[in-house]
Design a protein around this nucleic acid. Structure first.
Length: 404
RNA sequence: GGGGAGAUUCCCGAGUGGCCAAAGGGGUCAGACUGUAAAUCUGAUGGUUCCGCCUUCACAGGUUCGAAUCCUGUUCUCCCCA
């Protein structure tokens, strides 16, 4: 082996390892890379996504970004669209039984999923496989044989199942099938390595086991951290604490600015590719500057530099300087032209609050301003405006009521 | 197959005949503070024509002046025994 290859092995290894939580195992990966680079045969790196909810969030972007790095090194990415596994539901990191999706729901999600993944990966160079390709071809006997590869004891060793049993939460028998299915994907695509979140480690290891049983070299398992959402809990669409890849530039930027300081380091490492020393300098400086930079990097990546700058300008203006936004949505007066409306009803009618009760509460708490003046009486009658009336609810909601 | 426990408001979780729109915590919203946050403090948190009325405590009936609370049936979950 030439010294040139040895250096490149180290280079590739560093990319694999950067920000990773588990690597099983490094010795094996090094050997794979040596062979791969000397034989000029890219490694097949698998990643599976189940189209189980319509939107991907930045947490999903972490492994995808890692895949992109590997893709840029010339390795072959194999993206598994888990259209069959989605109907089972991955029990990983779940303390509850997942609702089972129908074929129709899966198909709808699938389209948006690949579109979103395309924001990160070069899909031209990505091998995309649906796992229904092989699962739909299996007979009941095939399924039995697959199930027979593991024992219940091995399965319930998993901490998620342990926890559920302790908490008397249900565990569906079909959930036992999930790790085996994911592992079977690895056998089918003959991958050299599989990437997943830290909660996937068990499933990834089952892949190694099955590949060995099938006479294949066991895959290297690589996990990336799961990140917390904006409220500190695990990021999840259902908690409403996620930043999704489909969020607009402004929404995305503003959301990142709400992140707690302590998480910034992880976010920089996992979601940006800024050099380490630059990140260190940023983190040592003013937290707001660092966070703004983080937000700008993320927004630029998922949208573009221009949109990110605009979002930052809007943030500075509206939040930092407490100025009105440049664009204020206009709402036509909802009543008859010469009419009057109680303030609470007006707020609901123009959509600034979802119910009149919410409007009343907010008004009574001093959260509503008309032309900049706090109004505390929810039944105060508002006359149809002759000139635009500026209505603000809290810090974020604003509209201009215009005559019609 | 037998026995036991349970299903509560967005989530978790109290409540076992009237004082229950239902404790407490989380989340969320509003206000204060601030660096944009976080943390902290205050208040709010089913709807509404808002000191009244309507809807809500798995579902369907029933008892009662009155039920989340009692009874019957149904659905779902957990535990133990076989």
């Amino acid at each position: 082996m030439s010294t040139g290859i040895a250096a490149r092995v180290e280079e590739h290894l560093a990319v694999f390892k950067r920000g990773a939580t588990d690597l099983i195992d490094e010795v094996q990966l090094r050997a794979m890379l040596e062979r791969s680079l000397s034989e000029r045969r890219p490694l097949r790196v698998k990643y599976g996504m189940d189209p189980s909810s319509p939107d991907l969030h930045v947490g999903h972007a972490i492994p995808l970004l890692k895949l992109r790095d590997l893709q840029e090194l010339g390795h072959q990415i194999v993206l598994i669209i888990g259209d069959s596994t989605a109907m089972v539901g991955d029990p990983s990191g779940r303390n509850k039984l997942r609702p089972q999706l129908t074929r129709e729901e899966v198909e709808v999600n699938l389209v948006t999923y690949t579109d979103q993944a395309a924001k990160i990966l070069d899909m031209e160079r990505t091998e995309i496989r649906r796992n229904s390709e092989w699962f739909n071809a299996m007979t009941f006997e095939d399924v039995l044989l697959l199930l027979a590869r593991m024992t219940v004891a091995q399965m319930i060793e998993r901490d998620t199942f342990q926890k559920r049993m302790q908490e008397n939460e249900p565990i569906g028998i079909h959930e036992f099938l999930y790790p085996l299915m994911q592992a079977w994907d690895s056998v089918q695509v003959r991958c050299d390595a599989e990437l997943g979140g830290t909660d996937q480690l068990f499933n990834l290891l089952v892949g190694r086991k099955l590949q060995e049983q099938e006479g294949q070299a066991p895959q290297v398992c690589l996990t990336t951290p799961l990140i917390n959402g904006l409220d500190g809990r695990k990021m999840s669409k259902s908690y409403g604490n996620a930043i999704t890849l489909t969020d607009g530039a402004r929404t995305m930027f503003f959301a990142v600015m709400r992140l707690d300081d302590a998480s910034m380091g992880t976010w920089f490492t996992q979601l940006t590719r800024l050099p380490d020393d630059e990140v260190r300098t940023l983190l040592a400086g003013h937290p707001r500057e660092a966070k703004a930079r983080l937000a700008e990097e993320l927004t630029s990546f998922f949208h573009d530099r221009e949109a990110a700058r605009a979002a930052r300008a809007a943030f500075d203006r509206e939040v930092r300087d407490r100025q009105l936004p440049a664009e204020i949505p206009e709402r036509p007066w909802p009543g008859a032209p010469g009419d009057t409306l109680p303030l609470a009803n007006l707020l609901k009618d123009i959509g600034l609050t979802s119910t009149t009760s919410e409007a009343r509460r907010t008004i009574q708490q001093g959260g509503v301003r008309l032309d900049g003046t706090v109004v505390r009486d929810p039944v105060q009658l508002i006359a149809a405006p002759v000139a635009p009336l500026l209505v603000q609810v809290g810090k974020k909601r604003v509209a201009r009521v215009v005559p019609r």
